[in-house]
Protein backbone atom coordinates (compact mmCIF):
# COMPACT_ATOMS: atom_id res chain seq x y z
CA UNK A 1 0.00 0.00 0.00
CA UNK A 2 1.31 3.40 -0.90
CA UNK A 3 1.57 5.71 2.07
CA UNK A 4 -0.25 9.00 1.72
CA UNK A 5 2.07 11.94 2.32
CA UNK A 6 1.04 13.85 5.43
CA UNK A 7 -0.30 17.25 4.64
CA UNK A 8 0.53 20.41 6.51
CA UNK A 9 -2.15 22.62 5.07
CA UNK A 10 -5.56 21.75 3.69
CA UNK A 11 -7.46 24.69 2.27
CA UNK A 12 -11.14 24.09 1.77
CA UNK A 13 -13.54 26.38 -0.08
CA UNK A 14 -11.70 29.57 0.77
CA UNK A 15 -13.71 32.56 -0.38
CA UNK A 16 -13.23 36.31 -0.22
CA UNK A 17 -15.32 39.04 -1.76
CA UNK A 18 -15.14 42.79 -1.57
CA UNK A 19 -18.69 44.14 -1.39
CA UNK A 20 -21.97 42.91 0.03
CA UNK A 21 -23.06 40.76 -2.92
CA UNK A 22 -26.49 40.35 -4.51
CA UNK A 23 -28.69 37.43 -5.65
CA UNK A 24 -27.40 37.79 -9.21
CA UNK A 25 -23.70 37.57 -8.27
CA UNK A 26 -23.39 33.79 -8.64
CA UNK A 27 -24.63 33.78 -12.24
CA UNK A 28 -22.67 36.83 -13.26
CA UNK A 29 -19.06 36.29 -12.20
CA UNK A 30 -16.28 33.75 -12.63
CA UNK A 31 -14.14 32.52 -15.53
CA UNK A 32 -17.18 31.64 -17.65
CA UNK A 33 -18.27 35.27 -17.50
CA UNK A 34 -14.79 36.65 -17.95
CA UNK A 35 -15.04 38.83 -14.87
CA UNK A 36 -14.84 38.73 -11.10
CA UNK A 37 -16.84 41.88 -10.46
CA UNK A 38 -20.63 41.61 -10.42
CA UNK A 39 -22.11 44.08 -12.95
CA UNK A 40 -25.24 44.46 -10.81
CA UNK A 41 -23.84 45.15 -7.36
CA UNK A 42 -20.17 45.90 -8.13
CA UNK A 43 -19.00 43.29 -5.60
CA UNK A 44 -15.58 41.88 -6.48
CA UNK A 45 -15.46 38.13 -5.99
CA UNK A 46 -11.71 38.10 -5.50
CA UNK A 47 -11.41 34.44 -4.54
CA UNK A 48 -14.13 31.82 -4.76
CA UNK A 49 -14.05 28.36 -3.18
CA UNK A 50 -10.31 27.76 -3.42
CA UNK A 51 -9.30 24.28 -2.24
CA UNK A 52 -5.92 22.53 -2.22
CA UNK A 53 -3.60 20.63 0.07
CA UNK A 54 0.05 21.15 0.77
CA UNK A 55 2.49 18.49 1.92
CA UNK A 56 5.38 19.18 4.21
CA UNK A 57 8.31 20.76 2.40
CA UNK A 58 6.30 21.17 -0.76
CA UNK A 59 6.34 24.28 -2.93
CA UNK A 60 2.99 25.15 -4.44
CA UNK A 61 2.87 27.64 -7.29
CA UNK A 62 -0.06 29.95 -7.89
CA UNK A 63 -0.19 31.51 -11.29
CA UNK A 64 -2.76 33.73 -12.94
CA UNK A 65 -3.28 37.06 -14.61
CA UNK A 66 -3.38 40.35 -12.79
CA UNK A 67 -6.48 40.64 -10.60
CA UNK A 68 -7.19 36.90 -10.60
CA UNK A 69 -7.07 36.74 -6.79
CA UNK A 70 -3.58 35.42 -6.08
CA UNK A 71 -2.63 38.01 -3.46
CA UNK A 72 -6.08 37.82 -1.90
CA UNK A 73 -5.67 34.07 -1.46
CA UNK A 74 -2.20 34.54 0.03
CA UNK A 75 -3.41 37.23 2.44
CA UNK A 76 -6.10 34.85 3.65
CA UNK A 77 -3.44 32.20 4.24
CA UNK A 78 -1.46 34.82 6.14
CA UNK A 79 -4.59 35.40 8.25
CA UNK A 80 -4.50 39.10 7.44
CA UNK A 81 -7.49 39.18 5.10
CA UNK A 82 -10.60 37.63 6.68
CA UNK A 83 -12.19 34.84 4.64
CA UNK A 84 -15.94 35.00 3.99
CA UNK A 85 -16.20 31.23 3.83
CA UNK A 86 -14.04 28.14 3.95
CA UNK A 87 -11.47 26.61 6.24
CA UNK A 88 -7.69 26.49 6.52
CA UNK A 89 -6.80 23.24 8.23
CA UNK A 90 -3.30 23.17 9.62
CA UNK A 91 -1.40 20.21 10.96
CA UNK A 92 1.74 20.71 13.00
CA UNK A 93 4.55 19.37 10.76
CA UNK A 94 6.62 18.31 13.75
CA UNK A 95 3.67 16.51 15.33
CA UNK A 96 1.62 14.69 12.67
CA UNK A 97 -0.36 12.88 15.34
CA UNK A 98 -1.85 16.13 16.65
CA UNK A 99 -5.37 16.87 15.40
CA UNK A 100 -5.54 19.51 12.66
CA UNK A 101 -6.89 22.93 13.57
CA UNK A 102 -8.92 25.32 11.44
CA UNK A 103 -6.91 28.52 11.58
CA UNK A 104 -9.95 30.57 10.71
CA UNK A 105 -11.66 29.43 13.91
CA UNK A 106 -8.90 30.84 16.11
CA UNK A 107 -9.61 34.07 17.94
CA UNK A 108 -7.67 37.13 16.85
CA UNK A 109 -5.12 36.78 19.60
CA UNK A 110 -4.41 33.14 18.73
CA UNK A 111 -4.31 34.03 15.03
CA UNK A 112 -1.70 36.68 15.73
CA UNK A 113 0.36 34.22 17.76
CA UNK A 114 0.09 31.66 14.99
CA UNK A 115 1.22 34.18 12.40
CA UNK A 116 4.14 35.25 14.60
CA UNK A 117 5.28 31.71 15.27
CA UNK A 118 4.50 29.75 12.12
CA UNK A 119 4.15 32.07 9.14
CA UNK A 120 6.57 34.09 7.10
CA UNK A 121 5.44 36.28 4.22
CA UNK A 122 7.01 38.31 1.49
CA UNK A 123 4.45 40.84 0.34
CA UNK A 124 4.09 41.90 -3.25
CA UNK A 125 4.69 45.49 -2.18
CA UNK A 126 7.55 45.93 0.32
CA UNK A 127 5.78 48.76 2.12
CA UNK A 128 3.13 46.26 3.20
CA UNK A 129 5.72 43.98 4.73
CA UNK A 130 8.23 46.42 6.16
CA UNK A 131 8.01 49.28 8.62
CA UNK A 132 9.79 52.05 6.75
CA UNK A 133 10.55 54.07 9.89
CA UNK A 134 12.52 51.23 11.42
CA UNK A 135 15.94 50.11 10.29
CA UNK A 136 16.36 47.08 8.08
CA UNK A 137 17.84 45.23 11.05
CA UNK A 138 14.88 46.28 13.19
CA UNK A 139 12.47 44.86 10.63
CA UNK A 140 14.28 41.52 10.70
CA UNK A 141 14.61 41.71 14.49
CA UNK A 142 10.87 42.13 14.94
CA UNK A 143 10.26 38.49 14.05
CA UNK A 144 12.89 37.43 16.58
CA UNK A 145 11.51 39.73 19.26
CA UNK A 146 8.07 38.26 18.65
CA UNK A 147 9.61 34.83 19.18
CA UNK A 148 10.78 36.12 22.58
CA UNK A 149 14.39 36.72 21.74
CA UNK A 150 15.54 39.12 24.45
CA UNK A 151 19.25 39.56 23.88
CA UNK A 152 20.22 42.50 21.69
CA UNK A 153 23.63 41.06 20.80
CA UNK A 154 22.13 37.69 19.83
CA UNK A 155 19.35 39.40 17.86
CA UNK A 156 21.87 41.45 15.92
CA UNK A 157 24.01 38.43 15.24
CA UNK A 158 21.06 36.48 13.88
CA UNK A 159 19.78 39.45 11.85
CA UNK A 160 23.24 39.92 10.38
CA UNK A 161 23.50 36.26 9.48
CA UNK A 162 20.09 36.38 7.78
CA UNK A 163 21.19 39.46 5.85
CA UNK A 164 24.34 37.66 4.82
CA UNK A 165 22.30 34.64 3.74
CA UNK A 166 20.06 36.83 1.62
CA UNK A 167 23.08 38.66 0.13
CA UNK A 168 22.37 41.97 1.79
CA UNK A 169 25.17 44.29 2.89
CA UNK A 170 25.44 43.50 6.60
CA UNK A 171 27.14 46.82 7.35
CA UNK A 172 23.89 48.54 6.41
CA UNK A 173 21.92 46.74 9.14
CA UNK A 174 20.96 50.02 10.83
CA UNK A 175 19.95 51.87 7.66
CA UNK A 176 16.32 52.64 6.83
CA UNK A 177 14.48 50.65 4.13
CA UNK A 178 13.85 53.66 1.85
CA UNK A 179 17.61 53.82 1.21
CA UNK A 180 17.54 50.29 -0.25
CA UNK A 181 16.70 49.26 -3.83
CA UNK A 182 13.55 47.31 -4.68
CA UNK A 183 15.44 44.06 -5.09
CA UNK A 184 17.20 44.56 -1.79
CA UNK A 185 13.90 45.22 -0.05
CA UNK A 186 12.51 41.93 -1.38
CA UNK A 187 15.50 40.24 0.19
CA UNK A 188 14.99 42.14 3.45
CA UNK A 189 11.46 40.77 3.43
CA UNK A 190 12.84 37.27 2.82
CA UNK A 191 15.34 37.66 5.66
CA UNK A 192 12.54 38.83 7.92
CA UNK A 193 10.22 36.02 6.86
CA UNK A 194 12.90 33.40 7.53
CA UNK A 195 13.99 34.82 10.88
CA UNK A 196 11.70 32.75 13.06
CA UNK A 197 12.00 29.57 10.95
CA UNK A 198 8.40 29.54 9.72
CA UNK A 199 6.51 26.34 9.06
CA UNK A 200 4.92 28.01 6.06
CA UNK A 201 6.52 30.60 3.82
CA UNK A 202 4.25 32.74 1.62
CA UNK A 203 5.90 34.48 -1.30
CA UNK A 204 3.99 37.02 -3.38
CA UNK A 205 5.68 38.07 -6.62
CA UNK A 206 9.01 37.82 -4.91
CA UNK A 207 10.97 38.47 -8.11
CA UNK A 208 8.74 40.92 -9.94
CA UNK A 209 10.34 44.23 -10.75
CA UNK A 210 13.83 42.79 -10.39
CA UNK A 211 16.30 42.70 -13.23
CA UNK A 212 17.13 39.26 -14.54
CA UNK A 213 20.41 38.68 -12.73
CA UNK A 214 18.94 39.73 -9.37
CA UNK A 215 15.86 37.66 -10.11
CA UNK A 216 18.03 34.59 -10.74
CA UNK A 217 19.86 35.11 -7.46
CA UNK A 218 16.63 35.48 -5.48
CA UNK A 219 15.30 32.29 -7.07
CA UNK A 220 18.56 30.51 -6.21
CA UNK A 221 18.20 31.70 -2.67
CA UNK A 222 14.65 30.40 -2.37
CA UNK A 223 15.67 27.07 -3.88
CA UNK A 224 18.49 26.82 -1.37
CA UNK A 225 16.21 27.65 1.57
CA UNK A 226 13.75 25.06 0.36
CA UNK A 227 16.51 22.49 -0.01
CA UNK A 228 18.22 23.21 3.30
CA UNK A 229 15.28 23.90 5.56
CA UNK A 230 12.45 21.95 3.93
CA UNK A 231 10.13 24.92 4.35
CA UNK A 232 6.64 24.48 2.99
CA UNK A 233 5.98 27.31 0.55
CA UNK A 234 3.27 28.95 -1.46
CA UNK A 235 4.76 30.89 -4.31
CA UNK A 236 2.60 33.39 -6.17
CA UNK A 237 3.69 34.69 -9.54
CA UNK A 238 2.17 35.81 -12.78
CA UNK A 239 5.36 34.47 -14.40
CA UNK A 240 5.19 30.80 -15.38
CA UNK A 241 8.97 30.75 -15.73
CA UNK A 242 9.39 31.45 -12.02
CA UNK A 243 6.78 28.86 -11.06
CA UNK A 244 8.42 26.28 -13.31
CA UNK A 245 11.76 26.67 -11.58
CA UNK A 246 10.47 26.23 -8.04
CA UNK A 247 7.05 24.68 -7.73
CA UNK A 248 6.36 20.97 -7.99
CA UNK A 249 2.65 21.55 -8.15
CA UNK A 250 0.76 24.53 -9.48
CA UNK A 251 -2.71 25.96 -9.39
CA UNK A 252 -3.94 28.31 -12.06
CA UNK A 253 -6.33 31.10 -11.11
CA UNK A 254 -8.65 33.15 -13.25
CA UNK A 255 -11.27 35.63 -12.07
CA UNK A 256 -11.08 34.34 -8.54
CA UNK A 257 -11.43 30.65 -9.40
CA UNK A 258 -8.93 27.83 -9.59
CA UNK A 259 -9.33 26.70 -13.18
CA UNK A 260 -6.59 24.09 -13.21
CA UNK A 261 -4.39 22.31 -10.68
CA UNK A 262 -1.74 19.63 -10.91
CA UNK A 263 1.93 18.87 -11.28
CA UNK A 264 3.72 21.86 -12.77
CA UNK A 265 5.41 19.81 -15.50
CA UNK A 266 2.13 18.28 -16.52
CA UNK A 267 0.40 21.64 -16.67
CA UNK A 268 3.18 23.03 -18.81
CA UNK A 269 3.24 20.07 -21.18
CA UNK A 270 -0.44 19.43 -21.45
CA UNK A 271 -2.54 22.35 -20.24
CA UNK A 272 -6.24 21.50 -20.06
CA UNK A 273 -8.01 24.80 -19.51
CA UNK A 274 -8.06 27.21 -22.44
CA UNK A 275 -6.72 29.96 -20.22
CA UNK A 276 -3.79 27.81 -19.14
CA UNK A 277 -3.14 26.92 -22.76
CA UNK A 278 -2.97 30.60 -23.56
CA UNK A 279 -0.70 31.21 -20.59
CA UNK A 280 1.66 28.41 -21.56
CA UNK A 281 1.81 29.33 -25.21
CA UNK A 282 2.54 32.98 -24.44
CA UNK A 283 5.25 31.99 -21.96
CA UNK A 284 7.13 29.94 -24.55
Amino acid sequence: MKSIPTWVLRVDGLTRRFGVGCPRCTDSVGPAHERSQCPWCATVHACTAASFTLARGEVLGIVGESGSGKSTLLQMLNLTSPADAGAIWYREPTDPAAPPIDLLRLDRYAMRQFRNDRLGIVHQRPELGLEMRFSVGGNVAEKLLLARWRNVAAIRERAASLMHQTELPVERIDDAPPTFSGGMLQRVQIARALASRPALLLLDEVTSGLDLSVQARVLDLIRRIQWEQQVTMVLVSHDLGVIKQLARRTIVMKHGHIVEAGLTDQILEDPQHPYTQLLVSSAL
Binding site: E131, N139, L145, L146
Partner: peptide, 16 residues
Protein backbone atom coordinates in the same frame (compact mmCIF):
# COMPACT_ATOMS: atom_id res chain seq x y z
CA UNK B 1 -3.97 40.81 19.65
CA UNK B 2 -1.02 41.48 21.96
CA UNK B 3 0.72 42.68 18.83
CA UNK B 4 3.70 44.27 20.52
CA UNK B 5 6.42 43.47 18.00
CA UNK B 6 6.81 47.06 16.90
CA UNK B 7 7.10 48.26 20.49
CA UNK B 8 9.90 45.80 21.03
CA UNK B 9 11.60 47.01 17.85
CA UNK B 10 11.30 50.53 19.22
CA UNK B 11 13.16 49.38 22.34
CA UNK B 12 15.72 47.50 20.25
CA UNK B 13 16.38 50.57 18.09
CA UNK B 14 16.69 52.74 21.17
CA UNK B 15 19.50 50.44 22.34
CA UNK B 16 21.14 50.35 18.91
Amino acid sequence: EADYGRMWVYMYESVV
